[in-house]
Structure formats: C-alpha cells, structure tokens
Design a protein around this nucleic acid. Structure first.
Lengths: 112, 112
DNA sequence: TGAATACTTAGGTATTGACCTAAGTATCAG
DNA sequence: CTGATACTTAGGTCAATACCTAAGTATTCA
C-alpha cells in the first residue's frame, strides 16, 4: 500500500530545512561536489556535510567519490513518494471542500 | 514569488511526524473534536494536543471552540503550497533525468 | 616529496521536540 | 450545585538537531 511511515518521516524531515531545500534546488542544475554545494552557505563545512548526510540517508540524493571529490546527485524516487502523499491528501481534502464552505459561512455569520 | 521559507519549514516539519499525518488523514473525513482525534492514539492528552498545536501553527488546520469542545478542520492552502514546491522540484528533476541515466550507466559499468 | 586541496572524524554546546504526570479551568448534565 | 467531561496549563525528562572548532586522512599537483 503506502510507503513506510518512517520513509515519509525522514523525507519530510529532510525537506523541513531551508539549507537542504536549497541544496536540492541547486542539484536540479546537475551533479555537484561537496565544496561546490557548500560555497553559497555561510556555515562550517562539517555542519554543511551533515545536511548532505540527512539528504542521502533519506534517499533524496546519493553520492560517489572519485579521488578526493565526492559528487552528489538527485534521486527522484523519494521526492515522488512525498509528492504522491501530498497529492493524495489534497485530492481527499478537496472532496471535503464543503467543510471549508461551512467554515466560511460560519465566519460570515460571526461577522454579522 | 515563492512561499516564504519559514512557511515551508513549518509545513514540512509538521508533516514529518506519523501522528500528525494520521490526524490530517482523519480530518479528510470531516471536522473532529480534540478527544475524537486523540482516541486512536496511545498518548497522554497534553502530548497529543501539542501535535494539534503544531498543525495549527503552520496553518494546515484550524480550530474553534464551542462550549467545552474544540473542533479541528483542514485548511487546504498550506498543503497546496507544499505540494506546489514538490511538484516544481519534481518537474525540474525530471528535466535532469539524463543525470540519472548517467548514474545508472556508471553503475552498469561498475558491475561489469 | 611536500604543500595544498577536499573532505572526514571527533567531540562539544545550546536549542528544540516529543513525550510524561499532576493539577487547573470551564462547561454541561442531572 | 455537584460531579463528570473536555480540554488547558505548568513543569520536567530525554533524545535528537543544528551548529561549532580542532585535528585527521586521502589525493593531487608542483
């Protein structure tokens, strides 16, 4: 059925940080090294690398090392799973828009 | 342009907990009271209410109190913003599928 | 080979998150 | 008006997160 809850936990958790989201956005322009990814951020390298570890642990990216350079790239699968959950929720929510209508009506009544 | 980063932070953070996701799923069946939402969970009420606070603080739900009963309901806006971010990312990622192809090719080479 | 580069490891601090128990307030039902 | 109900507040523990500095290892290049 659904994706394991722990997977969803770790993916949403990873997305809940602006540094990590910016890294993902950067990677949409192509693979990049650790120092290349770190450059825009005013943060000690070990701290930044920890963000990369979070992204890799949850499967949003992967990496490989050639010589002394480690290169990161996107892995679409997890992001798609997260999007699927959200899309399914939104679908269900919209079937419940009558709730919202009821709420708006209630607000209108309060105002008058 | 985009939604404020802090908003995205708090929404993804809220989604990164299985209890909170289950609450959202429950609310797609309609508004519900605190105790009604809490019933399925083996958790002290104050702990559970804290989850509701997180959901309300980030705008995924709202609540109103009538007498001694507080009722929660979904608010679609934030979820849609989160979905939009993910959809945009996925779109960009897919335009980069050549990266993935390159990676898969690399793996194939390693295996041989 | 020796210095520079690109991470990596080790370990420390401060805040936040997820839970708990105990006790409080506000409403409603009889 | 009294007890039960439905939260709410107060405060405490424990683990995880997001940073840091300092020092290490592994490559590459002159």
């Amino acid at each position: 059925m659904g994706v394991a809850a722990q997977t969803m936990d770790s993916v949403f958790r990873a997305l809940a940080d602006p540094t990590r989201r910016l890294v993902l956005e950067r990677l949409t322009r192509g693979p990049e090294s650790v120092s290349g990814l770190a450059a825009p951020f005013d943060m000690a390298l070990p701290s930044f690398v920890e963000h990369l570890r979070v992204l890799e642990d949850c499967g949003l990216v992967n990496s490989s090392k050639a010589g002394r350079v480690r290169t990161y790239r996107l892995v679409p699968k997890r992001l798609r799973q997260a999007e699927d959950w959200l899309a399914r929720q939104r679908h269900l929510w919209e079937r419940r828009l009558d709730q919202l209508d009821a709420y708006l009506l209630e607000m209108k009544e309060k105002r008058s």
